[in-house]
Design a protein around this nucleic acid. Structure first.
Lengths: 252, 252
DNA sequence: CTAATGTGTGGAAGATTTTGAAAGATGTTG
DNA sequence: CAACATCTTTCAAAATCTTCCACACATTAG
């Protein structure tokens, strides 16, 4: 194996695992740790990775890596069911606002066939459609809120204020009788702009969100047209929503 | 087997395996390593492969660089050199506008250590920094121009019009004595907004861009402060730029 | 036919690069 | 602060590269 091939393999491995120890890398390519250190130095110079104490970290992250944090993949099946059910509510060619967040991302995955116009502040969603020639995707702009790949701040708010959409698909951190709440003021501002500029409001909320109340209040229940959730949500909660003239859809 | 047939087979083999050691190649075509060395030298001259220590590497598809086309990855090393040299021109903590395009993407890869504030309309650049907590990245917003992952349109233009940056790092499709040109009107509008709102203008242009003129004119040479290019650019071109008070930096 | 010339090949000597290991410096952890 | 892990620097050994030379084979000239 040539030195270049070895370095290439190190790169590839790091793209997959994000972090790796020196011992792990040295074993992978079967050379001494000294040599791996030298390789990492070269690759760091090329900008493809970043050395750390004891190993290295990948710099290039793949577009779908935001989503694959462990916490979220735990309920991947439920969220996918919600995504599918929610996508079915959208008519062909509609203009759709897509919120950031993992649940809504799952909606996006099922939405392509409807050829919607999409407006979003989520980098993962943008990446999902970046190479799709068939549909128009508007990205809101804004400051990247690191962990989640969400665009926030005044630029994002302004973009949503200036457009009008048929549907807005959002999610939140909690829902009670008092309304929806979310975890961060920055996100709230944007979501309020989304709510104000869409004709129909759909919330995607898995069963863990019911009965929970998070940091900042977002809106009352009466602005909501439809809630999409999964089969594990307790029936009384759903009844409560129906009693307030909210359509309830349960994914399966 | 004739020498030409042998070289053809070496080429073909390398296209398949990407990397190969001298021993492997020597066994494949059943001649001494000396002869393989000579063959590789010839083939390298033809540009079909690249010699490395211990063997050779195919120049073709350097795996997935991103949404970028093969044409661009062909000159990955030159562009990387440009990226490095250009990043060295940036001071710590500066606000930097980053254009879309492969060359500028290479600048971005080398920029993290400067902890800049970044403003960009390039999805690949945004992704690059999306998980980096240490620096602030503003995404311009706009409609996704599919193949390249660039954000275009009025939203993007407006964002750039409203900010002010220390430096703007751009690229173009061609540069002549008459100025810089680029291939698409949508991109031009945004680049003009970038130029208007940055104090210092840096253009990153590899040697293939010199003497070329593309579809739409972008700007005159006199708005440029610095041009960063690679070692293959002909010296007369660089002299012409210097004669117009443009700083010229050659990456290596 | 034989000698001279040219070309491609294999191999060897010396130069260069790469590698692995060890020693001291630096950073990390309890 | 001490114990430990990891990093950088350094050096000798190993691998690889370049440069040369001799040989084999073909072509051409005498």
């Amino acid at each position: 194996m040539t030195a270049e091939e070895r370095q290439f393999r190190l790169e590839e491995h790091l793209k997959k695992v994000e972090f790796a120890s020196l011992a792990e890398l040295s074993e992978l390519v079967d050379v001494s740790e000294s040599t791996v250190r030298r390789d990492l130095q070269i690759l760091e110079g090329k900008g493809t990775l970043q050395r750390t104490h004891g190993g290295a970290r990948s710099i290039n992250l793949r577009s779908d890596e935001y989503i694959f944090s462990k916490r979220d993949t735990l309920q991947a099946d439920e969220k996918d069911a919600i995504g599918k059910a929610c996508a079915d509510l959208i008519g062909p060619g509609q203009t759709v606002i897509l919120d950031a967040g993992t649940t809504v991302f799952h909606v996006a995955k099922h939405l392509a066939s409807k050829k919607p116009h999409i407006v979003t502040n989520s980098l993962p969603v943008a990446n999902l459609y970046a190479s799709n020639h068939e549909l128009e995707v508007v990205v809101s702009g804004g400051v990247i809120y690191p962990r989640l790949g969400v665009l926030v701040g005044p630029i994002a708010v302004e973009t949503f204020s200036k457009i009008h959409a048929d549907v807005a698909i959002l999610s939140g951190a909690g829902i009670t009788e008092e309304g929806i709440s979310n975890s961060h003021g920055l996100l709230i501002d944007i979501q309020k702009a989304m709510l104000a500029n869409a004709q129909k409001i759909i919330f995607c909320l898995d069963h863990t969100k019911f009965g929970r109340k998070s940091f900042s209040p977002l809106c009352d229940l009466n602005v909501i047209d439809t809630v999409v959730t999964d089969a594990q949500t307790p029936e009384p909660m759903l009844e409560m929503l129906r009693g307030r003239d909210i359509r309830v859809v349960v994914g399966s």
